[in-house]
Design a protein around this nucleic acid. Structure first.
Lengths: 253, 253
DNA sequence: CCGCAAATTTGCGCGGCGCGAAACCTTGCG
DNA sequence: CGCAAGGTTTCGCGCCGCGCAAATTTGCGG
């Protein structure tokens, strides 16, 4: 037996139950159509690009769930399932794992947009928790098993997890400015980013908690509680403001 | 032609400034010797394994900093620099990126241990901030440039970042139980994990903020402020206890 | 001090991935 | 209609991740 990794990594490969393709299709159907995000639906070109991008991501997800692990899926198969050439896959993503992470990034962005639309009078935590719960538990009842497997794939599979975490930080980039405005702070302040990061972490931790074998609490309740807690940060004022400077808005990663 | 020349090609990608090998060595010298963590120093075998593991990690870091990016380093070179065969590298790590992430995981663990040693009378946030600042800014003054480049490599490089984020979550696994005990909560509660995740995010966000071109605030101050803010969560009690309360003593992840 | 069993390293080889380069096709616009 | 810009595909190469089995090192009695 080779030296290999720490104790938990060996276990972390908790094999996924298989999920039918039809369930995956229905899951995918829950994500809002591109028409719902009108901003970048300009040219036909852009739309087709987003379309194949999403096709690739969901092809990867579907195959991974079917076969009980992304490591049993080759990029060639993902490309074929998405109806493009193998080379094209790598025009969009550097790896299979990144392709799966991308859908998490999209979800994060929707959360930020939805939160921005909430009326300012609403309590901060309540509004945020509502938005998060709505996004993360969409179609939860009819497809609970599939949602469970999908979350497990994204946050437990030790190959996917790093890219999942990476994609999730997009939530912070999107959410921090919204929080800053809502709190009347400068957009480049550190404080809103700390709050956004806490919320991001809360979502993840609640999900990991839900996935544990020895716990059975409803996902909705866990998410709500965790997000409410993290959002509590926004109530207390920042300890001090750092000497910051002008902000030329963010670069992507 | 195996041409891996391109000196300014790396620069064009917004990559890292070069750092001398000697600086890397001094940086490495700052991490506590394994004797300081007496728990797993049992057999000679274990010690040698940890030794080569660290050798591999730091070889990867050194080469990446020298060449302005991990993408210009081959695994074979890392192995050679660490004095093992190429095959052995993959006995320890699945990828170069994971090798670099490992040192962050170790650091996270040291933080949790140090925090556990703080007297319970100390204010929660102060104690935690002290520990974090001490760990993350060790040798900061004489080696500021090198520390900066190292942090940039780990949190900005889009190849390394996912694995960095993944390794950093180890802080939560280690810190959550300590927090739980300090707050007198059950070890498997969700609340301490939310707090730990917030702290983890705070450290990361402060570091990213420090790395920005348009900001110059001292790293120490940014870290302290962010951690203090996140630690504020521990002051307010959890909104409610999750319904899935009764749990067997489970461990990590 | 020795030898044996277990643990670790190493050499070898294979399948697949990531990506550069250039040709090919499609879209947008005058 | 035609051309420029941009996306897709084909091809090919270098390297990576890892299974396997032989070689080597370590730990432990005898």
């Amino acid at each position: 037996m080779p030296a290999h990794e720490s104790p938990e990594h060996a276990e972390a490969r908790g094999s996924l139950e298989r999920v039918s393709l039809e369930q995956v299709e229905r899951l995918r159907g829950l994500v809002p159509k591109l028409a719902d995000t009108p901003e970048l639906t300009e040219s036909l070109r852009e739309r087709k690009k987003l379309e194949t991008r999403k096709n690739l991501s969901w092809a990867a997800i579907g195959l991974a769930l079917q076969r009980g692990g992304l490591e049993h899926v080759r990029t060639e198969e993902i490309a074929e399932a998405a109806g493009v050439s193998p080379r094209t896959f790598n025009n969009y993503f550097r790896s299979r794992e990144e392709a799966i992470g991308a859908v998490a990034g999209d979800r994060a962005r929707r959360v930020a947009l939805a939160f921005a639309d909430r009326p300012a009078e609403e309590p901060f935590g309540e509004a945020l928790a509502d938005v998060v719960v709505a996004e993360y538990t969409a179609g939860h009842e009819p497809l609970k098993a599939a949602v469970f497997q999908l979350r497990a794939l994204m946050t437990t599979d030790c190959g996917v997890r790093p890219f999942m975490l990476n994609a999730m930080t997009k939530l912070e980039d999107e959410l921090a400015p919204v929080i800053a405005e809502r709190l009347g702070l400068p957009g480049d302040d550190l404080f809103p980013r700390v709050v956004a990061a806490a919320v991001n972490g809360a979502i993840r931790v609640a999900t990991e908690y839900w996935l544990r074998e020895d716990v059975d609490a409803p996902y909705t309740a866990l998410l709500r509680e965790a997000v409410l807690t993290a959002a509590g940060l926004a109530e207390q004022p920042p300890p001090l403001s750092p000497p910051g400077a002008s902000l030329p808005e963010n670069t992507n990663l």
